[in-house]
Design a protein around this nucleic acid. Structure first.
Lengths: 100, 100
DNA sequence: AAGGTATATCGGTTTTTCCCGATATGCCAA
DNA sequence: TTGGCATATCGGGAAAAACCGATATACCTT
């Protein structure tokens, strides 16, 4: 993954917020029927509600974050759950500390 | 400085290169008549030559980096010397490690 | 099979970014 | 004070990003 693309993914208020919300799902989201959000993540609909943007926009934003290895997705039934990709984020922190 | 603006400043290949070149000016640039680049920085002209973009573009890029507290500028005579703003960059690394 | 729900993708409009050339400013030297 | 050089700023065209609504896909239920 190109470093520029990672920073582009982070260059948006909503996407930064999503990343932050996903740090503490229990605080920012409601319980979900099928999935424990600490393990599996938060579904797109909840993130969309919270962000207040259209469904298509949020879906796109999540895939931008995913391409940058900042979140990862799990599909269960008709839901897709997103959570932080802690490995990718730590990788980035390393790049940040060493290369920048 | 807004976090989004900092990431935007970093979302460009040339600007990332400039930041990297400025880590080791002696390796990437030529000696300069009036200024020791370890202390004062590298003048715009040298950065422009290295980057291969127009003078106006590089001047703008440098001010974007400056607004994000990633570089700082010193004017001496008709030259402006830019160097890394180590304090700003470390500040950012902290934000990065704690908030992201 | 049919209808409902969640998410992804497509096509488009508006805003922002990337770059440029031209021009302005500021400093220095003759 | 005139001319030259380094940098900054301005105006603009082309490309990319930020959104949106409409539609497609995929799954689940009945």
């Amino acid at each position: 993954m190109d470093q520029v693309e990672i920073f582009k993914a982070l260059s948006n208020k909503t996407r930064l917020q999503i990343l932050n919300w996903l740090k503490e799902p229990a605080i920012h989201f409601n319980e979900q029927p099928n999935a424990d959000f600490e393990n599996i993540g938060v579904c797109v609909g909840q993130i969309q509600n919270k962000a207040g943007l259209s469904q298509s926009t949020i879906s796109e934003y999540l895939s931008i974050l995913q391409r940058a290895d900042l979140v990862c997705a799990t599909r269960i039934g008709q839901w897709t759950y997103y959570k932080r990709n802690q490995v990718g984020i730590e990788e980035l922190a390393k790049i940040f500390n060493s290369e920048l």
